[in-house]
Amino acid sequence: MLHRFASPARFSRIATRVLPWSVALTGLLFVAGIYFALFASPADYQQGETVRIMYVHVPSAWMAIACYIFIAAMSAISLIWKHPLADVAARAAAPLGAAFTLIVLITGSLWGKPTWGTWWVWDARLTSVLIMFFLYLGHIALTHAFDNPQRGAKAAAMLALVGFINIPIIKFSVDWWNTLHQPASLTRLDRPAIDPGMLTPLLLMGLAFMAYFVTMLLIRMRADLNAARARARQLSAAE
């Protein structure tokens, strides 16, 4: 199963065939999701219209975490089976994950200003996401820090696995730190059972973000493989 997709040429062919469909699916899901999120869903009785920020915020948070798990899985596949596409996939996914994380942080603070009255609180969850953003940045920087791209891919794969083991430890530490330093003035909003009218846009947007991730991943991986081919051709032409 793993090795059937090991050939880059075969992958490019499949990606080219799948891409139009996944682009269409992404567009469709986004149109439906945004319609439900902005027009066909109720405002929250407590948060008012700002609750609509959640339909971007929560799916990005899901994707930010899913993307790191994806990178860690690809890194393990790359290091254990030396699968040629796993490095390409991890390299393609890292900037996407960083972007999702950044969206979580920005939309979160946009939501926090009217709701909590401040752009930023050192809440355990916010702090963990901020640290995750830097883990992504480190991964991206390391990938491009070597003259030999192969070496960069292996180093980044090692880092992704070390980071993956560390994330629960960091999360635990930050939670622990937060309970000690929790500012008394901050009253967190309890999460009531979610209204079904809000669940539809949330799930639609979640699926849209996932489809977007897959589409972008395919595009970026194909571009990466094409760039490598172009480099190889240039080198052979120069000889």
Binding site: G138, S173, W176, W177
Partner: peptide, 14 residues
């Protein structure tokens, strides 16, 4: 520094 400081945070906290 970029790679290690995030991993050092738990030690700093405790």
């Amino acid at each position: 520094a970029l790679l290690l400081l995030p991993l050092y945070i738990p030690v700093l906290i405790f």
